[in-house]
C-alpha cells in the first residue's frame, strides 16, 4: 500500500465518487416526474444509494488528498474540469427508456468493478465496495428487468429503447480503457485493470439485450475524456449549475 502514489489514488477515488455523484444527480432529476409512482420511488431510491456511495468515495478521496477537503467540498466546490466521471453518466436523461438504458449500462460495469474492488489491497476501498455492491446488485436487477420489459414491449417502446442504445453505446468503451492511473492502481493491487471487467460486462449486457430483442450497434468507437478530465461533454457544466447552485449563489452557506 505504501508504494501507491497518493495523488493517483486520489484521482482513482474521484473517478469512483464522481461517477456515483453525477449519475445520482441525474437520476434525482426524475423526482416527481417519473411515469408512475413506483418508478418515481425506485429512481429516487437508486439516486439515494448513489449519493450515499459518493459520500464514502469522496470522503476517502479527501482523506487521501490530505488538504482538509470534505466529500461536500469536493462535490460542491469543484468545477467541470476537475470532475473525473465517465461521459456516460453525465448524458441527459432523455425519456424514461433512455434513462433506464444509461442506468443499465452503468450498473453492469459498476457491479463488475465493485465486485473486483471487494478484493482491493486497500481495506478502506474493499469496505466501501462491500457495502456498495449489495445496493448495486439490486440496481442492475431492476434496470436489466426494465430494459427487457421496454425493449421487448410495444413497437413504440422497442423503437425508443433501440434508439437509446444506439445513442449511448459509444459511451460504453470509456469505462474499460486504462490510463496511467488505472495501471498504477492495478499494479499496486488497489483496483482491477478496467479491461478485465469487459467479459463480465459483455456477458450480462448481451444476455439482457438479447432478451430485450435489441441489437448492439456495430463498431467500437468510444467517446473518451470524462474520466481523465481531458474533456467532458457540454452537459456536465449545465448539470453542475443546478447541483451546485446553492454554493455558487451563497458561498459557504451551511444548514
Amino acid at each position: 500500500m505504501s508504494d501507491v502514489d497518493q495523488s493517483q489514488l486520489f484521482e482513482f477515488l474521484c473517478r469512483m465518487g464522481d461517477n456515483t455523484l453525477v449519475l445520482g444527480h441525474r437520476v434525482s432529476e426524475w423526482c416527481g416526474h417519473a411515469p408512475v409512482l413506483e418508478e418515481d420511488i425506485a429512481l429516487a431510491n437508486t439516486a439515494l444509494d448513489l449519493i450515499g456511495q459518493t459520500q464514502m468515495w469522496l470522503g476517502l478521496a479527501g482523506e487521501v488528498e490530505d488538504k482538509s477537503r470534505s466529500a461536500d467540498d469536493l462535490a460542491m466546490l469543484r468545477d467541470v474540469w476537475d470532475f473525473r466521471n465517465v461521459l456516460l453518466v453525465e448524458q441527459p436523461n432523455g425519456d424514461f427508456g433512455q434513462t433506464m438504458m444509461r442506468q443499465f449500462l452503468f450498473d453492469a460495469w459498476h457491479l463488475a468493478m465493485l465486485k473486483a474492488l471487494t478484493g482491493s489491497c486497500d481495506d478502506r476501498i474493499a469496505a466501501i465496495a462491500a457495502k456498495s455492491v449489495k445496493e448495486v446488485q439490486y440496481h442492475v436487477e431492476r434496470s436489466g428487468d426494465t430494459v427487457v420489459g421496454l425493449g421487448d414491449g410495444t413497437s413504440e417502446s422497442h423503437r425508443r429503447m433501440q434508439k437509446a442504445l444506439d445513442l449511448l453505446w459509444p459511451y460504453v468503451g470509456e469505462m474499460f480503457v486504462a490510463d496511467a492511473v488505472d495501471e498504477a492502481m492495478a499494479k499496486a493491487g488497489v483496483a482491477p485493470d478496467p479491461a478485465t471487467l469487459r467479459d463480465a460486462f459483455d456477458a450480462r449486457v448481451e444476455a439482457v439485450l438479447t432478451d430485450a430483442t435489441l441489437t448492439i450497434p456495430d463498431g467500437g468507437f468510444a467517446h473518451k475524456g470524462g474520466k481523465t478530465g481531458f474533456q467532458h461533454s457540454e452537459h456536465l457544466g449545465h448539470l453542475l449549475t443546478q447541483m451546485q447552485w446553492l454554493q455558487r449563489a451563497y458561498p459557504g452557506a451551511t444548514w
Binding site: E38, I41, A42, L48, D49, Y138
Partner: peptide, 13 residues
C-alpha cells in the same frame, strides 16, 4: 411484488 423499491431505502412494495 408491486415494486422492487418502497417507502424507505430498506424496503420493497
Amino acid at each position: 411484488r408491486i415494486s422492487q423499491f418502497g417507502s424507505t431505502p430498506c424496503k420493497a412494495q
